[in-house]
Deep mutational scan, measured.
Amino acid sequence: MDEEYDVIVLGTGLTECILSGIMSVNGKKVLHMDRNPYYGGESSSITPLEELYKRFQLLEGPPESMGRGRDWNVDLIPKFLMANGQLVKMLLYTEVTRYLDFKVVEGSFVYKGGKIYKVPSTETEALASNLMGMFEKRRFRKFLVFVANFDENDPKTFEGVDPQTTSMRDVYRKFDLGQDVIDFTGHALALYRTDDYLDQPCLETVNRIKLYSESLARYGKSPYLYPLYGLGELPQGFARLSAIYGGTYMLNKPVDDIIMENGKVVGVKSEGEVARCKQLICDPSYIPDRVRKAGQVIRIICILSHPIKNTNDANSCQIIIPQNQVNRKSDIYVCMISYAHNVAAQGKYIAIASTTVETTDPEKEVEPALELLEPIDQKFVAISDLYEPIDDGCESQVFCSCSYDATTHFETTCNDIKDIYKRMAGTAFDFENMKRKQNDVFGEAEQ
């Protein structure tokens, strides 16, 4: 370990593993360490099931009705991949897709007046949907046509809207959309967690709705994908990429100290040895004095023996409960997957309800979601602090990732990755940087 590296990475969460992969592909010498004996950090999948019970201090362990412990891979952080989103792009560019198998999530649902409705995925579904009345549908269709044709580089498509100054509230007004449709559009399509976006320039919202539609167009059922064997497969896929390009991995490796000289990182000390480096990437748990708390998320993992009611017996789905429907500031989400994804025993389902904490009784906040899941065989409640770095790391060369937020997709995580890359490399992130180099010394032969 007593060696000189360009970059040392602490923690094998998804953000850290993707950055480690990119740095290795770009010719950097990388050492990647984790104090845990497993990959994934906060974003790991726990197996066998006995391990999950232990982690949540349920000492009696799983009953026999849960089947074989080894058949379970339970995500600690519930997220899906947008089919046309940035993480899929990263997987394709790096060819990490060859280590993973994905399934399309069967449906996306939205909560309205105590019931759940399928988010329409085709024009026919939209016309048949009970989510809105006849005239509302016509106006909504006009709005969707506007979004589909919108091109930020072609003012002819703006229809009198200025993407940089017109607020989204004004765009909704222009198409005369009612409150329910606005809730549905902002939260189930643009996937905002709160209503803060309404008074911001509309460009980002329009682009988010386009991303949803384009992702949906790829597979038809929903815009989301999920990897077989759980999300823990993602960091491992990128760790393989890093290793192929010469990255060194050490799990179960305690970090005793991060060594600084004149305010700059110069190395990491572990078990009496020092590895030197020019730059350091880590998750917040490794540098508690360089991060601040930015809120909390509650996630309740529920094991069920039945599909969720009114989802047409889907073996995977997402449910969004827009905040307006339950008098909150932030949406509540449910991600459900099952034995069909090799993450649970035969006939079992895993539904994870999550939201940003707003009160001193977080469990009560998630109740509307839990009511949709009854009866629940077993619950595991996790309340996590969200951390963000206190500075950009440019001076110390210590670059810290943000905690995983309450969103049900990876777009915010990818933004964090691109942002850290830019601060480390001094140049904007470009997907081309992730391409495997042809015929290089570490390149794998085609399968």
Rank of each mutant, 00 (worst) to 15 (best):
L189S: 08
T122Y: 01
T124I: 13
R423L: 09
V7G: 03
F146L: 04
A351D: 00
F143W: 10
Y53Q: 14
R292C: 11
R169P: 03
T427K: 04
G247W: 01
R173L: 10
Q447K: 00
K422S: 15
V268R: 00
L386K: 12
V381W: 15
G267K: 06
T427F: 11
D101H: 11
C317G: 08
S44G: 07
S316A: 11
V274G: 03
K269S: 12
C414Y: 05
L241M: 00
K418W: 01
Q447L: 01
T427E: 15
D2E: 05
V206Y: 06
D392N: 08
G41R: 04
R436S: 00
T124D: 08
E365R: 05
F399W: 15
E214A: 03
Y404D: 09
A353P: 11
Q325W: 10
D6V: 02
R70H: 05
A351P: 02
Y349V: 04
N315L: 06
H306R: 06
G160T: 02
L231P: 01
T165D: 12
E16Y: 01
E432G: 10
R193L: 09
L49I: 14
E159L: 11
N262I: 01
E50Q: 15
L100R: 02
I244N: 12
L191P: 03
D385F: 03
E214R: 04
K112Q: 03
G230A: 03
R292H: 08
D283Y: 01
L177P: 02
D170V: 03
K364P: 15
A428P: 14
S167N: 11
K329M: 06
L234R: 01
K210V: 08
L91P: 02
K137Q: 06
I209Y: 15
G246C: 09
D183H: 11
E432L: 07
T412I: 11
L31R: 00
G67M: 14
C202F: 04
P284F: 02
A344E: 00
D430F: 04
I383T: 10
R208I: 13
T194W: 04
I308L: 06
M23I: 09
D2L: 01
E358R: 05
D391Y: 01
A344V: 07
C302R: 02
T248M: 11
I337M: 11
K103M: 09
N312K: 03
A188V: 04
G21I: 14
F146A: 10
N310E: 09
V25Q: 11
E214Q: 01
T407S: 13
K264G: 15
G27T: 14
N36I: 01
R218S: 14
D419V: 08
L58V: 07
E95R: 15
N439H: 04
T205D: 15
G13D: 02
K112H: 04
P307A: 04
Y245S: 07
L76W: 13
G443A: 12
P62H: 00
G67V: 07
L10P: 02
L373M: 06
E233R: 11
P389L: 07
L216Q: 04
R436Q: 14
T412R: 11
N130A: 00
C202G: 04
A344G: 04
Y421V: 13
E432Y: 04
G21R: 04
P375A: 05
I258T: 03
Q323N: 13
I417L: 13
P322F: 01
A217V: 08
T427G: 04
P163I: 11
G247K: 14
